[in-house]
Design a binder for these strands. Structure first.
Lengths: 105, 105
DNA sequence: TATATAAGCAACCATTTGGTTTCGCAAATA
DNA sequence: TATTTGCGAAACCAAATGGTTGCTTATATA
């Protein structure tokens, strides 16, 4: 079972949940109220978000507050950064080549 | 059929393909050589990447070069930025509240 | 104490996914 | 011209996904 943050954020409902939880910790029921879906469906999304540790639970009486582990988002940034480096290096290499061609003329 | 960039980069093989194509445009066969998979499987991934316009084709004889549309990556950055703003605002609001409490004492 | 509420869990279902094999077409090459 | 090569498309398959309904447990409240 693939379960990484990219998989977690692939679903639009889960992305919306992440943004919701970025504002404040919430219970499954209160999250579900923001969407056109059932609590159980939200619960499943929360489980996936929990499994890749993007979200943590905090029991409070019979309610469970889910709050965001914002640090985890850095994994996405890290990949983007990796991409950006490759993309930039690619151009700088081209620059070097062009620079070489210039000198030879 | 959901087909957005988040869906596109949800698969680890597709993320690897994106990084490969960030270095240089490649044909399906040469891409497949970098992975433990068939050309057809790569072809399917390329189709998905094409559908969300993260990749463009360029026919050259009987070969088709796939190159990255790096601009598309900004959609991921945009969402991350949105998240970051919410996350930061959340803290600045807390700061304001604390600031208020301080003054009242 | 009886009832209402919050939530996880399991079973089920339709659809999507990632992969394979097979095929046909077009371009290159012998 | 005959053959090889590069490719997409279609048919098929097992597994995963997103959703539903029904159940149980635990906490709060009348």
């Amino acid at each position: 079972m693939r379960r990484d943050i990219f998989q977690a954020v692939a679903d639009p409902t889960r992305r919306a949940i992440v943004l919701l939880l970025a504002v404040q910790a919430m219970t499954p029921n209160s999250i579900a109220e923001h969407f056109d879906t059932t609590r159980q469906a939200v619960s499943k999304h929360l489980r996936i978000l929990s499994e890749c540790e993007l979200v943590k639970q905090q029991q409070q009486g019979r309610e469970i507050y889910y709050h965001l582990e914002a640090e985890k988002m850095k994994e996405i940034e890290a990949w983007l950064e990796k991409f950006r480096q490759i993309w930039q290096t690619r151009f700088s290499q081209l620059d070097e080549v062009l620079e070489q061609l210039k000198k030879k003329r």
